[in-house]
Amino acid sequence: MEIKGEQEFNGGRELLYELLLDPDVLASALPGVERFEEVAPDRYESTMRVGIASVRGTYTGRVEVLEQSPPESYRLRIEGSGKPGGIRADAVVDLSESGGGTTMHYRADVKARGTIARLGGRLLGGVARLLIGQFFKSIEQQVDDRAA
């Protein structure tokens, strides 16, 4: 499944680039983070309690940041697995300046396995969109906080 979209931010792209790859920011912006550790440069491991309403589970995740080209683009490889299966996403993030702010374009190839793939198919797109939206809202907040 491909998920793509764009998001406008108020701050400049250097700031945004920095924020997006700051482990503390990530830890607070990613949904339900219980643990977030840098295990190697640009590699993180986390435990997250992710879900919506009653459909909720604990996932252990790995995030790897690749192909960094500040302040323009990077690639993220995200893997999460829990009892109902797992998710793997390969995302490319591009930042471009627009007016006074920054436009972020993202495109992710998302693959699910286990029960999530088997039974979650019809919900997956909507859930991913919602979680990504929550993430951006949090980043937006932090951009605004920094800018302020």
Partner: peptide, 14 residues
């Protein structure tokens, strides 16, 4: 199956 070999019709719901 999806392209990774994940079955997407593994219940009577699909």
């Amino acid at each position: 199956y999806d392209e990774d070999g994940q079955p997407v019709t593994a219940s009577f719901m699909d």
